[in-house]
Amino acid sequence: MKVLRRFVYPYIVWAAVMILVPMLMILIYAFTKEGNSVRNFMFSLDSFKRFFSDPVFGEVLKRSLVIAVLTTFFCILFGYPAAYAMARSRFKIQLVLLTTIPTWINMLVRTYAWRGMLDNKGLLNTFFGLFGVGPFKMLETTFAVVLGMVYNFIPFMILQIYNSLEKIDKSYLEAAADLGANRVQVFLKVTLPLSLPGVISGITLVFLPAVSSFFIPKLLGGGKYVLIGNVIENQFLTAGDWSFGSAISLIMAAVIIISMYITRYIDKKTDPEGGAAL
């Protein structure tokens, strides 16, 4: 029995070295001065000061947040009806599978495909041309970036909402209808509140990758379209300023944690009226 416990030890060592140490390094570098050496460790808040004093970075942070919020909003707007339709379909299992499969195929490859479709001479503009409209400049716009993000992340939202819709006991809906609620009322007062937990976990799954993504803005927004992920990428691969890069990724992590906290807070606040009693 106790022999088996030893099987954990190698992984504890491995995880400490390969998972914890890199995370600690981000923390340490974020609070030290420029220079790629751990030996002359000096506590400093310079990197954070630099980030918040330069309006360029404030602008980037704001843009990243706006893009992530827009992405999350559109994922709910288009994802909710899709999940609702799936939950009422006869081919539930097949549809869940069809929604999952794209997420298993390389995100970068699927994002690259949109370049060919959104191009001025691309598939969509040729299609619009048939009706005599366009060509529209779609590539290297905010539209393309948000579209790329919605495309990549909406399956997560749909599947989460679908799961929570599936969990709803059908007798609640019948009870509400029996008690005189019409279809719209049943949806607004019973289905929607009961499916909110799915929406909340969907938000978590969409917002996090949307804030940190750097290849979607680069592929679809062009080189000039800079989000916070691109700044981090540049600091590590071009500028070589680890301290500043680490500080930015900590700021990004803080933004993610704060937004998750806000989402949960809103969820809890709305909960007592809706689903708590059930």
Binding site: V8, M18, L20, V21, P22, V211, F214, S249, M252
Partner: peptide, 27 residues
């Protein structure tokens, strides 16, 4: 031990990939 390992285990799953990536790069 179980809780500790599960906690550490969650880090690469929950962290944005870019954070895991730069951590390993520096490491």
């Amino acid at each position: 031990i179980k809780a500790a390992v599960e906690q550490i285990n969650d880090m690469p799953i929950m962290n944005p990939d870019i954070v895991t990536g730069i951590g390993l790069l520096m490491f």
